[in-house]
C-alpha cells in the first residue's frame, strides 16, 4: 500500500527542517553521538507512523517524542547492564584546522570538557538544561514534560549552568 503523497511530503519536510536539531538533542541527552543518531532515526520512524497533529508546534512535538525515546533507551536493560564507554583514539580529535594547532587543540579540549561536564550532570539537570537552553522551552513547558514543579526546574537549570560554567572557567584559568 502506497503512502499518501501529502503525508510523505510532510515527513520529508519535517526531517529536512528538524532532523539536525533533534539529532543534537538526542546526542546531548544520551551523551553519545551514534546512539543519538539511532534514537533520532527512531523518532522519525515513529513520526512517520504517527505524524504530529495539525496545528501543533512540530519542533516541540518532535522534541517531546525524542526526549521520551531517550528516556526509553536509558531505562532499558541494555543501557544499564551492557552500555559502557571506552576511550578510543579518534583521528578527528587531532585533525588539522585553520585556527592553528594550539588554538585548535585548546578549543577541542574545552569542548571535550564541556561535553564531559554535560555528561556528569544528573539526567534531570541535563534534560532541563537542554530543553530550556537549546530547545527554548519555557520553564512551565519543561516542568510539564518532565513532571516537575517550576521551582524544581529552575533549581536544576541553575545547578546545570553552574557546573558547566565551572568547567569553562577552570579550562580558561589553566
Amino acid at each position: 500500500m502506497r503512502k499518501d503523497p501529502k503525508a510523505h511530503a510532510r515527513e520529508a519536510t519535517l526531517a529536512a527542517t528538524h532532523r539536525d536539531g533533534i539529532a543534537r538533542l538526542c546526542r546531548l541527552v544520551l551523551g553519545d553521538a551514534e546512539l543519538g543518531e539511532d534514537v533520532c532515526q527512531d523518532v522519525f520512524i515513529k513520526v512517520a507512523a504517527t505524524p504530529p497533529p495539525d496545528g501543533a508546534d512540530e519542533r516541540r512535538w518532535l522534541a517531546r517524542v525524542a526526549i521520551n525515546a531517550c528516556h526509553d533507551v536509558r531505562r532499558g536493560r541494555w543501557w544499564k547492564t551492557q552500555y559502557r564507554r571506552t576511550d578510543e583514539f579518534d583521528e578527528s580529535f587531532h585533525e588539522n584546522d585553520s585556527r592553528g594547532p594550539e588554538r585548535c587543540l585548546l578549543d577541542a579540549e574545552q569542548r571535550e570538557r564541556i561535553h564531559a561536564a554535560l555528561g556528569e550532570l544528573t539526567e534531570r539537570q541535563r534534560q532541563v538544561f537542554l530543553l530550556r537552553h537549546f530547545e527554548g522551552w519555557s520553564t512551565e513547558e519543561v516542568a510539564e514534560q518532565l513532571g516537575l514543579s517550576a521551582g524544581s526546574i529552575k533549581t536544576h537549570l541553575f545547578r546545570a549552568i553552574t557546573a558547566l560554567r565551572d568547567v569553562l572557567n577552570e579550562s580558561e584559568n589553566e
Binding site: 553521538a33 551514534e34 569542548r111 571535550e112 561535553h115
Partner: peptide, 25 residues
C-alpha cells in the same frame, strides 16, 4: 561558549561511540 561547544559534536572519545564502544560488560 557553552552553547557553541555543545552545538558541535563531541570530537573524541568522551561522546563518540562506534561499534566497539558497545562493549559487553
Amino acid at each position: 561558549l557553552i552553547g557553541n561547544a555543545l552545538s558541535e559534536p563531541a570530537v573524541s572519545r568522551l561522546a563518540r561511540r562506534d561499534s566497539s564502544r558497545r562493549v559487553r560488560t
